[in-house]
């Protein structure tokens, strides 16, 4: 290509313009406005700043949006309500069954944030053109990913804190008994998120539209909620169901959270008679790796495919299907 000549010509001036930390003062005027900062130089910080700022703004919008906030809070309320109606003990122990259920519900909510909320956000923003706008913006896609990571982590932490905090106060729910327990809670939650978030991103990259996305994901995740030992001990399930559920991350997230939240006596109700923490770590890490391997090319493809005409074609189709105009 003959482009190299000019590219090289502007590159010299670029170094000059980018010679100070990027994005500090928006009203600052670089010497040559035809030579904006490049990635890799100090200008490479700009996507980080923009991404974090974006994440904070999105969080604020989430909190200000009554409908969406109600949706997230009602998950927690439902979890607490269900728990408050359970009065028996975990079989073979004196540990309240409610504790097992609440730990399982915490695992399910993490699972849901990664595999339901995230794909929905991604698909919606793809349809509205947010992804395209950021693609057309320098450093926009890295900033977008940074913002979404922040959003998801805060959502997950907030959900866990509210569920367990309110659970402890209102329905005598479980909390870790030791520093080790808190640590386990932290790493299981973190690894659990890592196991489901890339998968959710991959789903968000391929699913056609928000309505179908919801329908497609909801059913399997409800099935997993029931079969993964999140709501009642896994050992009550037929062995075949246990085996199938064990392939998916929810079982292991829930088991890891139980190990953090319940006393060791509760191990009696586990299928293996122990918490199997190494297996928890291994399975979740494997899902994380698989998720990243899937998500990176799929997200890249989804971004690359975005263009104005595809956007309007999708919107026309959505309107034809009777969806409310975006």
């Amino acid at each position: 290509m003959t482009t190299t000549g000019t590219a090289a010509a502007t590159a010299g001036a670029t170094a000059e313009a980018a010679g100070e930390p990027g994005g500090t003062a928006p009203d600052r005027t670089p010497p040559d406005r035809t030579a904006p900062g490049r990635r890799g130089g100090p200008g490479g910080l700009r996507p980080w700043r923009a991404g974090l700022r974006r994440g904070v703004i999105e969080l604020r919008h989430l909190v200000q949006n009554r409908k969406e906030l109600t949706g997230h809070l009602s998950n927690i309320v439902v979890g607490l309500l269900v728990t408050s109606f359970i009065h028996d003990d975990v079989p073979g122990t004196h540990i309240p069954m409610a504790h097992l259920t609440l730990a399982g519900f915490a695992g399910y909510l993490l699972f849901q944030i990664g595999l339901l909320n995230l794909p929905q956000i991604l698909v919606t923003e793809r349809e509205e053109g947010t992804l395209l706008r950021l693609r057309a913006t320098p450093g926009g896609i890295p900033a977008y990913l940074i913002a979404k990571s922040l959003l998801i982590v805060v959502m997950a932490l907030g959900t866990l804190a509210l569920l367990l905090g309110a659970g402890a106060v209102l329905v005598d729910g479980p909390l870790p008994h030791s520093a080790g327990g808190w640590l386990t809670l932290l790493w299981v939650a973190a690894l659990g998120l890592l196991a489901v978030v890339p998968l959710g991103a991959a789903l968000g990259a391929v699913l056609p539209n928000p309505r179908e996305a919801l329908a497609l994901i909801m059913l399997p995740s409800m099935a997993l909620l029931i079969t993964s030992g999140a709501m009642f001990p896994l050992s009550r399930m037929p062995v075949l169901v246990q085996d199938i559920a064990s392939v998916f991350p929810l079982r292991w997230i829930a088991q890891g959270l139980r190990s953090a939240l319940l006393p060791d006596a509760a191990r009696a109700a586990e299928t293996a008679g122990s918490w199997q923490l190494p297996t928890v770590a291994l399975v979740l890490a494997a899902w994380a790796v698989l998720g990243f391997l899937l998500a990176i090319p799929l997200l890249r493809r989804a971004t690359r495919r975005e263009s104005g005409s595809r956007l309007s074609a999708r919107q026309t189709r959505a309107r034809a299907n009777g969806a409310p105009a975006l």
Partner: peptide, 15 residues
């Protein structure tokens, strides 16, 4: 660097 020099106004944006 090139992106920063180009602006886009599409008719289909609802973002």
């Amino acid at each position: 660097a090139w992106r920063a020099r180009v602006g886009l106004v599409l008719q289909s944006w609802r973002d």
